[in-house]
Amino acid sequence: MDLSIVVPLFNEEESLPELCAWIRRVCAHQYSYEVILVDDGSTDDSWEVVQRLRVEDAAVKGIRFQRNYGKSAALNEGFKAAQGDVVITMDADLQDSPDEIPALYYMIMVERYDLVSGWKKKRYDNTLTKNIPSKFFNAVTRKVSKIHLHDFNCGLKAYRKKVVKSIEVYGEMHRYIPVLAKWAGFRKIGEKVVEHRARKYGITKFGWERFVNGFLDLLSITFVGKFSKRPMHFFGLWGTLFFLVGFFSALYLIIAKIFNDEVWVTNRPAFYLALTSLVIGMQLFLAGFISELVTRNAPGRNTYLIEEKTGL
């Protein structure tokens, strides 16, 4: 199969027929394709619409969650089900244009990108509540991840099949799929300016809290990506620094007491700082040892992504 189009949705009953008809116009005569609609626990008639669309068009497939789990969970299940050589994700609200599909497919199959992220250069969102926080969020993510994309959170993306089968999207990590792909060893990540359309039906499903959650997830993914296989390298480094600061501070106080009997060690603020540093250092060491035990006994402790083999 050439193409899988994964569409996570939540309460989008009005837009689904128009979206699927648009995708069919673009893809039907060019590709063998499937449209995987993942209903993230909608409370309207979205699932009934999906079932009807499935009857009308065999290319439409549906997955329904029992309750709302979030966009990341919907994408993760869609990725598991996808069979196409190229996987394209888009939102169900008609703000992403299916007319972008051929160009995205070309960039993956001909220009050999592993992942192509859309860039909504011209937006129709409210500037104060979306554009400014989004620019700040993207700038920080670029700085931390070293991936030079303008719009990490754009729902319109294209992937080589191997990419989506090599990553796990959880929590609210859908914003950081390019980062997940990079940590998995996929380096050729590109960007394409795409059309952003004004919302036609309904209201946005995301609030201000997504920015707070986004930065927490960025810290989490950075730590997991670097230290998931060797947590002691992180905790041990900081544990050593704190322990040495505490040790040398305590040593200084002891020497000062030896040469001056009038000095009361426990009356000096440095004593408590030294004691605190020693305790923190030992706690970090302990956290590192526990993390190593957890990592070494985890089911995926020796699971690594292999590009290819020869002679085996």
Rank of each mutant, 00 (worst) to 15 (best):
D151A: 11
A158R: 04
D151N: 10
Y176R: 04
V212N: 11
F211R: 05
V163N: 00
C154M: 01
S145I: 04
S145F: 00
F186S: 01
H150W: 13
K162R: 09
K143D: 06
F211P: 05
K182R: 15
A198G: 08
G185I: 00
G190C: 09
K192Q: 11
G171F: 08
K165D: 00
F152P: 00
Y170I: 12
K165V: 05
W208S: 14
K146C: 12
R175A: 13
K146L: 14
R175Y: 15
G155A: 07
Y176C: 08
G207N: 03
T204E: 08
E168H: 15
V194R: 01
F206N: 05
K182Y: 14
M173Q: 13
R160T: 06
D151V: 11
N153M: 14
H174S: 11
V212P: 07
R175I: 13
R160F: 10
F206C: 06
E172Q: 12
Y159W: 02
Y201S: 05
V144F: 08
R210T: 08
A184L: 07
G171A: 09
K182E: 10
A158Q: 00
V164F: 05
K182D: 10
S145E: 01
K188C: 10
I203F: 11
E195I: 13
V193C: 12
M173S: 14
L149D: 00
A181H: 04
R199I: 02
Y176H: 05
D151M: 08
V169I: 10
G171L: 04
K165E: 03
H148F: 14
K161I: 10
N153Y: 09
G202K: 04
G207W: 04
V179E: 08
G190W: 01
R197S: 10
H174C: 11
A198M: 01
A184D: 08
K165I: 00
G185F: 05
G155T: 05
S166T: 03
D151R: 03
K200Q: 01
I147L: 06
K182F: 13
N213M: 10
S145Q: 10
A198T: 06
H148E: 14
R160L: 07
E209F: 04
Y176A: 03
K188D: 07
I203V: 13
R197W: 08
M173I: 07
V169K: 10
H150P: 02
V193S: 14
Y176W: 05
E191G: 02
K146T: 08
W183I: 11
I189K: 05
I189E: 00
K157G: 09
R175H: 15
K192T: 07
K161R: 14
K146R: 15
E191V: 02
V193F: 07
R160S: 12
F211A: 03
S145H: 09
A198I: 06
G190R: 09
H148Q: 14
R175G: 14
D151K: 07
H150Q: 15
F211L: 02
L180A: 09
K192C: 08
G155Q: 01
E195N: 12
E168D: 14
H196L: 04
E172Y: 12
V163A: 06
N153H: 11
L180Q: 03
